[in-house]
Design a protein around this nucleic acid. Structure first.
Lengths: 320, 320
DNA sequence: CTAATATTTGCCATAATTTGATAATGTGTT
DNA sequence: AACACATTATCAAATTATGGCAAATATTAG
């Protein structure tokens, strides 16, 4: 991991690079995050972050598909803007809802939400305190629609607004774009505030929800609860169906539409990630076999093979 | 209200008759109940109850359809046996699940459950402490299937077992059946214990659950929450649909299959029952108009007409 | 109380979803 | 590497949800 803090005459830029999804999840200042890697290949993650007063701006790159659980600090609003949704639409989901190419994501602080992101994913993030945002809105005479913001995770933004915002953020956060670093902080902040207000005044909530969403979401939630409670045991699909009072086929449809994975894939990835977490902080004396068994892996040969396939290294290498 | 306690040389028999569903709900010793009357006509209710040590046996008659919310004391098991389900099957529901003619109802203590009962309904009730039941089962070498008992509200019982139990209970609880009153208590209790064990050894859970049940139940639950939170305001059907993220027709189907009432019927009955409750315990100075308005009734003429139609008396008569 | 208006319900055709059987594929085990 | 077993894909049939419309019912105004 390389971590460099470039200090100019103003706020620092924090730059982190990391090769593990779990560690990467902790590198965003003041966020509580939990990442599970759900595609095969060595992970590479990078964050460029600029903290201001009451305002956080960052760019995040993640090389592998992830299932993220995120929580921002209270009394704030987060916006997530992915510059390359066009190509990868329908692969990113927030709370199980697919994004259209012109959608940005929006969630208030202190409420957990889930993100499913594909491999080779880039996203800009903006977090601002609610009070600050309200102040700015008042000052500029912009009316904010809190109902939209609080109840819709996806906001559709017109093309030109979106590209303007993307340009602004790119200028601010590209590591090589030194030109922006000469700008005084207060001017940069003003620019961002204007951008935010522009977004909120042009936004219209994306309410395209399939009728099946509610039902499928509730099935997946129940299934995940159940799997979580029994993570040390081998759960069969039929058992899970009974626990969720549903049929195999519906369980599968639900998982695929909400998480983009089949139930068993989800189960396997969750467990492999669990093992990896435990391996990273294993006490001396704990064996790989112990830890693997805690997560329901009984056949170490097969396990090691799968583990290496996903994380690019063998369990014993993780254990150091 | 007539209440007579007939004392013999052993346990008393408690006999209550009442003309109001809400009061009736409180007359079962040690139960927490909340009844809403959901059919039109003057209410008449009757309970015959025999309390024993660790065991309660009763018969209940209710003249009007009811939506009941029930809670038995902790560490107990309740059985509900309706002798006339044959004719009225599909009209009685427990937690929104319809009963077949050979089903009895079963719920553990300390867990709230809901009953929908038709007009002119009779039911026998048996409550026994868990420990007592386990003791008896051990003593008789009967194995109890706790999973069935805890997770299934409906147990199917063979015809002959059912009639035997019905006969036993009728003998015990028919007001005129004086012959049983000569039997010493401990013998009666033994008979009941044997009956219970017979039931639990012959029982097979009724797991006929329509696939739509889960979904519809959750819609109805959400809808009721919403209605409960806004009981003082007039809620329109479309508003409720939005709140529940569902369509008009689906909301209606859900209510009809879970509660046996349309959403608006449910709403009206709930409110009329609410007013009646408040009227019964109104402070001096409160007017009918005040109380009615609290429950969303703005047109007193219409309200009085509906109220009389359901409860058989005008609001002012209830107010005393 | 009655008439005018609005809401709700029942019914229907259509669309969407769920289901279960079977075939194909993948996984764990020896 | 090969077997047995479990999972996933495919498809047609069954179930369920939806929305329009007309009839029934309820609300409001006079």
């Amino acid at each position: 991991m390389i971590e460099s803090v470039v200090t100019h005459n103003h706020q620092p830029i924090i730059y982190t690079v990391i090769h593990d999804a779990h560690e990467h999840a902790h590198n965003l200042t003041d966020w509580q995050q939990h990442y599970d890697q759900i595609s095969a290949g060595e992970f590479y993650g990078q964050i460029i972050e600029r903290p201001f007063e009451d305002l956080q701006v960052f760019k995040e790159h993640t090389s592998q598909a992830l299932s993220q659980s995120c929580l921002v600090w209270p009394d704030s609003i987060w916006l997530g803007i992915s510059p390359q949704l066009q190509g990868k639409q329908n692969q990113s989901k927030i709370n199980g809802l697919s994004l259209n190419s012109n959608d940005i994501m929006c969630r208030p602080g202190n409420i957990e939400f889930e993100l499913t992101t594909p491999d080779a994913f880039d996203i800009y993030g903006l977090v601002i305190s609610r009070d600050k945002l309200l102040n700015q809105a008042n000052k500029q005479g912009v009316e904010l629609n809190w109902q939209d913001i609080l109840h819709n995770e996806r906001l559709s933004i017109p093309d030109n607004t979106l590209s303007a915002i993307n340009f602004l953020l790119a200028r601010l956060l590209n590591h090589n774009a030194t030109d922006s670093h000469g700008t005084p902080d207060h001017l940069t902040q003003d620019l961002i505030h204007m951008g935010l207000l522009e977004i909120f005044s042009k936004e219209s909530p994306n309410q395209t929800v399939h009728t099946s969403y509610q039902h499928r979401k509730s099935i997946v939630d129940r299934a995940r609860d159940y799997l979580h409670q029994h993570h040390e045991r081998a759960i069969t699909l039929s058992e899970l169906c009974e626990a969720c009072h549903t049929s195999r086929r519906t369980l599968q449809n639900s998982f695929e539409s909400i998480l983009g994975l089949s139930p068993i894939q989800y189960l396997r990835y969750t467990r492999l990630n669990g093992v990896r977490r435990d391996l990273k902080q294993a006490k001396t004396g704990e064996t790989i076999g112990d830890i693997a068994a805690r997560w329901g892996f009984w056949h170490l040969g097969q396990f090691a093979k799968d583990y290496k396939n996903v994380f690019g290294e063998l369990p014993k290498e993780t254990l150091k």
